[in-house]
Design a protein around this nucleic acid. Structure first.
Lengths: 355, 355
DNA sequence: CATAAAATGATTGACGTACCTCATAATTTG
DNA sequence: CAAATTATGAGGTACGTCAATCATTTTATG
């Protein structure tokens, strides 16, 4: 076995580990001055096409790669990103907030400052007001869990025309002018939930109940859509009840579940939104437990998975989401071509055995 | 638009967000010299306990955080990490290799150089020989998919006593002196596979077949263990055939599958290792398709998921694995307390709908 | 060919930390 | 109390890039 270095990594290893090329080397091989190299590399303009090509060729030839440490140091750039989250202390938002505070510490060393702003959940005016604040508008980037409202869209439009990168988080606002969406594909989430629902239910008889938070929330709507599509396509045998709205509240979810249990024989319940606690309470003592699939690996859901009260959880990794958002905002505010695949977050699927 | 000079862009945000503290600020608040601060921060020793405490207090008080860009620049440290992989061009290793070449480019800017060394698969001597090479021993870190052999363990022991960080990848060698294992928990993987197998099979009748690559490979062994545990605990109704060895080869797997199909009525097949192609070939034309759960999202498996030939894939994210390995090796060679949770890679679960 | 405009060169000073040397101060030791 | 030891201070250089200025050369324009 000869260990041919993978791609042309010439004489590494043995002894002569030559120092990595710098802009000086590039300038020398291109036979231009340092200033010109700098102008080309940082796209400052005012350079003849001929020289641009000379520099570009020299970059390839020398194998020059910008030393990001030195660049960052020299620039002295600092980033201030603002996350706008609903104030609900409930499961998922809490997880997101935790992930955020985690990264807060980690990113300080990279000169990235993360501000968290809390607005009253479900209140459009609060969100709009937050987006209008001076100190938020001065951020280098804004990520928010946006409400589906024209006022919010208008505010986002204003920000983006001002040049502030805006990301939607968790739930998209595709008709707005946000630069990108960071979160899972919720249609896929719904479809995946349906696959497992159908297979877990197996040959059992009964209807399937979907409990969303709000059908006005795009993420929930999309999950319901995806779920319904696959259920009707692949498991037409199972009756799909109309989706109900639990408003992410345990009490409401409890009532809805009770009601459905009374009216139908349930083979499965898809908990599209929050409020699993209410769901579990309603099922307590019920003779036959339907298959239950829920979203987000909150403490409640984790516990319920372990005790076997629910069967499967589809999670959008909050930590990954935060990281993707930060990377994206940084790229955007540096006007770099975005590197990640748009901020799509793969789904994580949990059962009792792999928590 | 006022063109404020670039550095000195003081008045960010609301109030003018004072510049981040430097070692100078720490020195001033601690009432010691820069040199002393430096000695404390970089643990050079020779500082009175009293001064150490003064500096530490000043760090907290000022909120000083080391500017990693400046530190890296000043240090001029470069890392050279070596990955030792088997030469099998087959599915998973190829994916790992791809992920690695991807990161190779990305990490060059961070002064991390990744070398890939290929050794003949399943040959102990080749692996040992690779670990003995001068240029590999000179690495700042080594990650390898290790064979379960005393010679390899001995070689790892030698390296670690020399101070070279060594990681096991994909399959652990817990009795060796490797610094950490980067990969999934394969027992959990097996348990998870069993959960889905049991639930997907549902009320169908039939036996369950496990096809491992080699039962001498720890990762496969662990998966089989986990699978068996959950099957016997939770789905005792299903007969579990003794695990067979397909040596990750399509032809062997094909023969084994044919054989089993002839001898038993199969409700499910757990493809612990590679060679799914053979499995699919053997099943072609067979009247009843058993539930099939496989490992790693290779091209074959992805295609088979899409066509519905297999039901579920458990994947260990190769990209995440490579990143975790690099982070760990960097921390280790800087003698920092390791930040990640030891390099555990969460399982990714794929069905047709969420590829 | 003169002149304006564009392109390039030469040089310099940050940025914050690491690391080194040498001198001096403070403390311990005999 | 002197000598030896330990702690500290003062100062400088280097890392590679960015960003700016000003002088100079080359090219285009009428």
């Amino acid at each position: 076995m000869i260990d041919v270095p993978h791609n042309l990594m010439a004489f590494r290893g043995e002894e002569n580990h030559l120092p990595r090329p710098t802009i000086h080397d590039v300038a020398r091989t291109a036979r231009v001055s340092l200033a010109t190299v700098d102008r080309v590399l940082n796209k400052r303009g005012g350079v003849a096409e001929k020289s641009v090509r000379k520099v570009e060729r020299a970059v390839v030839e020398t194998g020059y790669i910008r030393d990001v440490s030195a660049a960052n140091l020299s620039r002295g750039r600092e980033y201030r990103f603002t996350f706008i989250l609903p104030d609900s202390a409930t499961g998922f938002v809490a997880l997101l907030r935790d992930a955020l505070t985690q990264e807060q510490a980690r990113f300080k060393a990279d000169k990235v400052q993360l501000d968290i702003v809390t607005t009253s959940a479900f209140e459009i005016t609060a969100q709009v007001e937050a987006l209008r604040r001076r100190n938020i508008r001065n951020s280098d980037g804004i990520a928010l869990i946006a409400s589906e409202a024209p006022e919010v869209q208008a505010e986002i439009a204003r920000l983006t025309t001002e040049g502030v990168p805006v990301l939607t988080l968790v739930s998209d606002l595709p008709r707005s002018s946000r630069h990108a969406y960071v979160g899972p594909d919720n249609v896929v989430a719904g479809r995946t939930a349906a696959t497992f629902m159908g297979r877990f239910v197996g040959t059992s008889e009964g209807a399937i109940l979907m409990i969303a938070g709000s059908l006005a929330a795009r993420d929930h709507m999309e999950r319901v859509m995806g779920f319904r599509m696959v259920m009707t396509e692949q498991f037409p045998r199972l009756a799909l009840l109309p989706a109900v709205q639990g408003f992410d509240t345990a009490d409401t979810v409890k009532d809805l579940t009770r009601q459905a249990l009374g009216a139908h024989s349930l083979a499965g319940i898809y908990a599209v939104g929050a409020g699993t606690r209410g769901l579990l309470a309603a099922l307590k003592g019920h003779p036959h437990r339907p298959i239950i699939i829920a979203h987000e690996l909150t403490d409640t859901n984790r516990g319920a998975l372990l005790t076997g009260e629910i069967d499967l959880v589809i999670d959008q990794n909050p930590a990954a989401e935060v990281q993707a958002a930060i990377t994206l905002m940084r790229d955007l505010s540096d006007q770099r071509p975005i590197t990640t695949n748009g901020g799509a977050i793969p789904l994580s699927i949990f059962v009792r055995e792999n928590i």
